[in-house]
Design a protein around this nucleic acid. Structure first.
Length: 323
DNA sequence: GTCCAGGGTGAAA
DNA sequence: TTTCACCCTGGA
């Protein structure tokens, strides 16, 4: 499998009155699994029936976009908002196009769980999101589910973020200072529940500069994780998600109940060890590919659960058990 | 209508 | 190391 050169994309519209559209080249890119598979929570599938190639609408920074999977990559249309310099590169960066999936494919093609997953739905990538939005999103994920997380994060953006387009979800994510100023009760009234009491102090720490999230991109994994878990409401699981999906830490391996089940089922992870040890176990096995491997594992578990409820058929084509 | 699970965390036991 | 409260939404 070959992949496109990083960042090879170009603007295809030059009319200043037309919203720009451009293509991002990537030999494998599964837009839906990447943007709407549990890494981020402000993307929505739009348009036709399931058989058609899907489009997803969402916001990157202060730009409202629609991303459509096309052969050889993705077509990106700007729907509204600011269009920063070198925006195609910004989108490519966000979508994790620069990562070389072939390394994972080569190293784990024979893996009992990851191997079939990579063959079955290649092109699932690691997003490189804004760390602040990512942090709030995963604080919201605590004892929640994806529909509700989307509801909560969407409400925060809608009520506190800057409107950037005509759509009901076209809002930039509010800056830490704005969230801090809104207060806990405001977030509770939005339906965030007990998570509100974690988000406000986190917002204050980030707004005041006491915690520099962007600096953590250049901080080694363990040190960065240690900084994140000092926040109330952020344990190792949430820290690993933020590190993996926004802070350039490919070795992060978030352990949740689905991943635990997968590790026990496919790799013989002992049931009696704790999640911290399970995470170490996985890092030992997957190393620098941990975060991506975890995403393929998570995606497979989701499809598997969906198939059990009578939904997708993709999983039924993959082996159901070890050996 | 009820019941239950849902990409956890922190404090108390 | 284990148990429990924390909030509340969507699906069965």
């Amino acid at each position: 499998m070959t992949l496109a050169q990083p960042g090879k994309s170009q603007l295809s519209s030059t009319n200043a009155n037309q919203p720009p559209a451009f293509t991002i080249e990537a030999d494998v890119l599964d837009v839906g699994a990447t943007v709407d598979g549990g890494q981020s929570f402000r993307w929505w599938r739009v348009g036709g029936p399931k058989s058609e190639l899907a489009s997803y609408e969402g916001v990157i920074g202060k730009t409202a976009v629609r991303i459509t999977e096309v052969t050889g990559g993705a077509q990106v249309e700007v729907r509204a908002g600011e269009v920063p310099e070198a925006f195609p590169e910004v989108v490519a960066d966000y979508l994790g196009i620069h990562a070389d999936l072939t390394q994972l494919f080569t190293a784990f093609g024979d893996d009992p769980c990851i191997g079939p997953a990579m063959t079955g739905y290649p092109g699932l990538r690691l997003l490189r999101q804004d760390p602040w939005e990512c942090l709030v999103s995963f604080i919201c994920s605590s004892t929640s589910n994806i529909p509700r997380i989307k509801l909560n994060v969407g409400a925060v953006a809608r009520e506190l973020g800057q409107r950037i387009g005509p759509g009901e979800r076209d809002f930039a994510f509010p800056a830490p200072g704005v969230v801090a100023g809104a207060g806990e009760q405001f977030l509770r009234d939005l339906g965030l529940g007990f998570r509100a009491k974690f988000i406000i102090p986190a917002a204050e720490k980030v707004a005041s500069g006491q915690l520099d999230l962007f600096a953590l991109r250049a901080t080694p994994y363990y040190e960065a994780r240690a900084k994140l878990v000092t926040l109330n409401g952020v344990g190792e699981k949430i820290a690993d998600c933020v590190l993996a999906f926004s802070m350039d830490k490919p070795e992060a391996f978030p352990i949740d109940r689905h991943i635990r089940r997968a590790l026990e089922r496919w790799y013989g992870l002992p049931e009696n060890i704790n999640n911290s040890q399970a995470s170490d176990f996985a890092r030992e096995r997957f190393g620098q590919h941990g975060a991506l491997a975890q995403q393929y594992m998570f995606h497979r578990e989701r499809l598997s659960q969906r198939a059990k409820r009578g939904g997708a058929q993709v999983e039924s084509e993959l082996p159901q058990d070890r050996n």
